[in-house]
């Protein structure tokens, strides 16, 4: 009996979107709250600004991107480095039906607050039950 050489499947990298430049990108921590009329997303994105935050919503995909300006020491290195400085990026698949035209956002103290209003159709409606 001959032993057949079992071909090991080639290890392939999982495809994912990558930035074109090799600068670290970080996942912001988020809270996502559901209210009767909207979804609210709170994202910790310190060091960016209202102008540098880019929000895209298309076909239920929500993309958050915050550009962060370089603020690393220029001449010397760090004496202690516990975090890296880079852009913030995160993508979500939103299953709720969102009224894209009414999406609004604020940026305050390093936190992005995003309001995703639900369309009228999905808002809970109380149905009155009549008695004769």
């Amino acid at each position: 009996m001959t032993t057949m050489a079992i071909e090991k499947p080639a290890e392939r990298e999982i495809a994912r979107t990558e930035p074109t430049w090799n600068r670290p990108q970080f996942r912001p921590n988020v809270d996502i709250l559901e209210r009767p009329d909207e979804l609210t997303v709170l994202a910790d994105m310190p060091g960016t600004s209202a102008e540098d935050v880019n929000i895209q919503f298309e076909n239920g995909t929500l993309k958050l991107h915050g550009k962060v300006k370089d603020r690393e020491p220029q001449e010397t290195g760090y004496v202690l480095q516990e975090y890296g400085v880079g852009d913030f990026h995160r993508t979500f698949q939103v299953s709720e039906i969102i009224d894209a035209a009414r999406i609004s956002a604020e940026y305050e103290d390093g936190v992005l607050i995003l309001h995703l209003p639900k369309t009228e159709a999905v808002k809970p409606r109380k149905i009155a039950v009549k008695t004769n």
Partner: peptide, 28 residues
Amino acid sequence: WFAPTSPAVNVWEDTDNVYAEAELPGLK
């Protein structure tokens, strides 16, 4: 690396100063 609220800190120095930087989103 850290507990939920404990901020990460970066420290560096030049000839005159020592600098410490921390990310504290949502704090006043």
